[in-house]
Design a protein around this nucleic acid. Structure first.
Lengths: 194, 194
DNA sequence: AAGGCAACTTACCAGGTGGTAGGTGAATCG
DNA sequence: CGATTCACCTACCACCTGGTAAGTTGCCTT
């Protein structure tokens, strides 16, 4: 595998665990037994490395998502399938989920330097899909956005809480929670679109 | 006001903005035109300062919540009022909300230290209330927990996104979102209990 | 008046931070 | 073959990090 790709994968894991400020570029490089200057050679700066991490996550989501959307027949089914796919994707890549959540919290600080909104197109397309899926229920863009955001919040907050909930209630209860969560998430989505 | 209290307030704001690793004790002290050694005099270490910040938030939240829980009469109405009150509380103190969210993400790292589950009694009582509020819909503890967690996720994720959404969509759109959010949150809660 | 103590201060430290400058050896290419 | 490019290196920089040591100042108690 290319060194640059390995840098991005390692950085994704470390940023997920400790956040942007909690990870030094030297720490990322050490994981691959390279020097931080090797990293700087490939990315130029820490901020650009972080940008590529976000871009990679964003690309992965957008590509898979557009595939799902095209495969669907009617807007409503496509939107629901898209959301459930998103839930599976977040569940199967917890590091991506954590990085996205951290980015949400951090980017007030970084916004001045990095003015790129990697996830905005993703949010926009979800809102458009929501409007198409439930034109009677959702009267305008703002309302569609709010409903989409409720659904995203319900799934992301739960997935991001795994370590805490396992420690709080034990892994047996956590397993029970996850088994209940998917059907309840479908029910939530349906309830929000009717 | 006591210097120590002012330190905690300033630290809460900065930790909310940049996270634990993103804030130096010197930065906190500078905000109050004091030296970092003044801070160390009061708290001993950065970790202890952070602990006091968490404790202060936890105390504030628990006090408010226990007051509300006692005041409820009808289980269903009491539960809904409780959730909406919680939404208002989070909304009125965005820094507290951000710090709690960050702690949720970080405590996989600090799992050893994080044995203070300040939110567990709160979660437990919410689950009990949910079961009492909708005994026909919710068959067991796990199901009640899942539904409660969906609602909490929907509100917390939205509130935590303010800085990002303001920059992404502008403050005018953000205002439109917040106006839609409260009624839609009530609708979400109702839909999840029927 | 004397002592103690809380609330600060300056001076300092070892180690880490992101980043620059200027290489080295190996592969590629005209 | 020589020139260039690539992927990496060592050396170095100015600044920042949390934390220690040792005062200094002014109020409170005895």
């Amino acid at each position: 595998m290319e060194t640059k790709t390995r840098f991005i994968e390692t950085a994704t894991r470390l940023f997920a665990e400790r956040g942007y400020y909690g990870v030094s570029i030297a720490a990322v490089a050490n994981e691959l037994a390279l020097t931080k200057q090797a990293l700087l050679h490939h990315f130029g700066s820490k901020e650009k490395l972080y940008g590529e991490v976000l871009q990679t996550i964003s690309n992965r989501l957008m590509e898979d998502m557009s595939r799902i959307v095209q495969a669907s027949e009617n807007p409503r089914e496509g939107f629901e399938a898209c959301l459930m796919y998103f839930y599976d994707a977040l569940q199967s890549r917890p590091d991506d989920t954590l990085v996205l959540m951290r980015e949400l919290l951090d980017n007030k600080q970084r916004a001045e330097n990095a003015k790129t909104w990697y996830l905005k197109p993703f949010l926009d397309s979800l809102c458009d899909m929501a409007l198409a899926a439930s034109p009677k229920r959702l009267k305008n863009q703002a309302q569609a956005f709010v409903v989409v955001y409720q659904i995203l919040g319900a799934m992301k907050y739960f997935l991001v809480s795994e370590p805490t909930l396992v420690q709080m209630f034990g892994s047996k209860n956590w397993k029970a929670f996850t088994e209940h969560y998917e059907p309840e998430l479908r029910a939530l989505i349906a309830a929000r679109l009717d």
